[in-house]
């Protein structure tokens, strides 16, 4: 049992660290200028000069994938931060205070969850215009309810515990109880959720960019590359494969990592 659990974690960690490495390298080095078009070199199949081939404008796909990983990480990290911090604060207050504040907060969260995430993001983009910043903020906001629910249930559970009552009795302030006594205990499911929603955010960004609403051309994004590649799927299959595989690795990696962490931290183990 213990072995299978750690394997999940290991695969997840391998994928994620691989992607992280690609992203770090892309900050300092790219094989080619990402937006540079060489018309004569269109649709070159993978070779030593272009390991992933070239696209319909003769741009190097590897460089664009590497540059695209920056976008993916930026979007994932920012969206999860917004969702995680916002959701935890809301969930903590709702769970700790309880009563009608809990009701109001959680019903708002329910209402937000009733909207399909992509729809909310589309609405946001329509109102504020399509840009990477807006997409990221929208994705962050739509992941708030998930975090809020997890945090709330943890806080409801822990506020009954004797150590909380003791802290209260000794005159600790509510803020200090929330942050120093209860939060560390509920952090583990939140980290798991963060890892999972990181994958969700990357996928959603790819989806929105695929629809032309995220990253603006000519800057690369995996979703946008997939969109541009679909017309040439039989002519240049490598063009579709590269972003497709990278999106898959990201989503799989972060999901496995999340699963792994959860099982590692499982008290019943």
């Amino acid at each position: 049992m213990l072995n299978t659990k750690s394997i999940q974690l290991k695969i997840g960690a391998t994928f994620v660290s691989f992607l992280f490495l690609v992203m770090i390298i892309s900050l300092f080095y790219l094989p080619y200028e990402v937006n540079y078009m060489v018309v004569e070199d269109r649709f070159l199949p993978p070779s030593l000069e272009h390991p992933f081939g070239t696209d319909n404008f003769g741009r190097d796909i590897l460089s664009r994938i590497m540059q695209g990983s920056q976008t993916a990480f930026l979007v994932g990290f920012t969206a999860v931060s917004i969702g995680g911090i916002g959701g935890t604060i809301i969930g903590a207050i709702a769970g700790y205070v309880g009563g009608w504040i809990d009701e109001i907060f959680m019903r708002i969260m329910d209402a937000m969850m009733a909207f399909p995430g992509i729809l909310l993001a589309l609405m946001f983009i329509t109102v504020f215009g399509s840009s990477l910043t807006n997409t990221t903020i929208a994705l962050g906001i739509m992941s708030i309810p998930g975090f809020a629910r997890i945090a709330r249930s943890g806080f409801i559970q822990y506020k009954q515990f004797d150590f909380v009552k003791a802290a209260n009795g000794m005159g600790a302030s509510h803020v200090s109880i929330i942050f120093t006594h209860i939060l560390p205990n509920v952090l583990s499911p939140i980290i798991v959720a963060a890892s999972m929603s990181f994958a969700g955010a990357v996928l959603a960004e790819a989806g929105l960019s695929y629809l032309g609403l995220g990253v603006q051309p000519p800057d690369p994004s995996w979703g946008r590359m997939l969109n541009e590649a679909q017309s040439y799927i039989t002519k240049a299959p490598w063009y579709t494969l590269a972003p497709g595989i990278f999106i898959t690795i990201t989503v799989l990696g972060f999901n496995l990592l999340g699963d792994g962490i959860r099982e590692l931290r499982d008290p019943r183990k």
């Binding site: 078009m37 404008f57 399509s130 032309g212 051309p217 000519p218 969109n227």
Partner: peptide
């Protein structure tokens, strides 16, 4: 997509004379 592709080529061509053209996709 046809116009989007055209825009990408034009943006690169305009760079030769120092015109920086940002592409904005609108629904």
């Amino acid at each position: 997509q046809f116009h989007v592709d055209t825009a990408q080529v034009i943006a690169q061509q305009l760079e030769q004379v120092g015109i920086k053209a940002n592409i904005e996709l609108v629904e």
